[in-house]
């Protein structure tokens, strides 16, 4: 494997990692605050992709300007987060925070199953494909290999913007600080008068919107098909657990690790490709039981 191929593998790895990060970071944010591992996160990803692809297909067919594809993605993500994520937190998850972990996970599993069928009832089984956003940005040739600007540059830039934005948002804004406070110590947050329920709702909407945003961005590069959420959720779990639960920067590093591992596998040993995320996760957790960046929690006596 020469330097050129290494460079190509790195490019492919980074662009894949960008998408994985966007989805996983929402999952880890929600877990950090709500302490619920949300299986339905994959459904938000799929809903974001479906909404963008179907609405995009309709408006571009009607002759609207192609640059609208970009604001459309943001809009779809926020709408899915607020209109689907919001009620789920408010009316369902809000009732189960006192239950055991297992039951909480299963509630989100049930939501996932329901949303899978909802998607099919709305959009049917036929794949959607809407690449206007990607086509807008054109291609770039590196080492004789043509890449789309969208995948090679745009997606990684968006991922970095989201990462920095989240970090700054949590540090600098009032809501962000409240979220951080709830993450650090829920009981103390309640005693000083923070409206924890509201923080939960906001966090969940942000998390769901991030997943939907990931789906919206992915819809420009991939076919939107039934079942796409199920694959993404397992991958996000692997990222989140490997990174350490609730670790935002950790999710970025892990996504990169998995992305690079995967693309090098395609060059060196394609048969290994699908195993990479799980092997990385298993290896990391064996050495660092709380994940790469996780901290050991104090045990209650």
């Amino acid at each position: 494997m020469n330097a050129q191929l290494v460079a190509l593998a790195v490019f492919d790895g980074i662009s894949y990692a960008a998408l994985v990060f966007l989805v996983a970071v929402g999952l880890t944010l929600v877990f950090g605050v709500l302490r619920v591992l949300n299986v339905a996160h994959g459904s938000f990803y799929a809903l974001g992709a479906y909404a963008t692809a179907s609405v995009g297909g309709a408006i571009f067919a009607a002759g609207y300007a192609p640059w609208l594809a970009f604001p459309l993605m943001l809009l779809a993500a926020v709408l899915i987060g607020v209109l689907v994520g919001g009620p789920i937190e408010k009316f369902l998850l809000g009732r189960i925070y006192e239950l055991e972990d297992v039951l909480q996970i299963l509630v989100t599993f049930a939501v996932f199953m329901i949303l899978e069928d909802v998607q099919r009832l709305i959009w049917g089984g036929q794949p959607f494909f809407e690449a206007t956003a990607l086509n807008q940005l054109g291609t770039v040739t590196v080492f004789g290999i043509t890449y789309t600007v969208y995948q090679l540059i745009f997606l990684p830039v968006v991922a970095i913007v989201v990462l920095i934005g989240l970090r700054l948002g949590l540090r600098r804004t009032l809501t962000g600080r409240l979220i951080t406070a709830v993450t650090e110590d829920r009981e103390a947050a309640v005693t000083i008068g923070i409206d924890v329920e509201r923080i939960y709702l906001i966090t969940f909407i942000i998390g769901a919107s991030l997943a939907a945003f990931g789906g919206a961005l992915a819809s420009a590069t991939t076919s939107v098909v039934p079942g796409m959420g199920a694959d993404m959720i397992v991958l996000s779990f692997a990222v989140v657990a490997t990174a350490g639960l609730g670790q935002i920067e950790g999710a970025a590093v892990t996504a990169l690790l998995i992305g690079l591992g995967r693309s090098f596998a395609v060059y060196l040993w394609p048969e290994l490709e699908v195993l990479i995320p799980y092997i990385i996760m298993f290896g990391v957790l064996l050495v660092r039981p709380s994940g790469l960046f996780g901290t050991v929690q104090a045990r209650k006596i």
Binding site: Q4, L5, L8, A9, F11, D12, G13, S15, Y16, L19, G144, I145, T146, Y147, Q151, A218, T221, T222, S223, V225, G227, M228, D231, R262, S263, V266, Y267, P270, E271, E273, V274
Partner: peptide, 20 residues
């Protein structure tokens, strides 16, 4: 010879290699 998994959402890496 590539056998990406069934339902794979992305073939970018395979396509890079095929271009090479």
């Amino acid at each position: 010879e590539f056998f990406p998994k069934f339902g794979a959402p992305d073939f970018s890496t395979e396509i890079s290699r095929l271009q090479a």
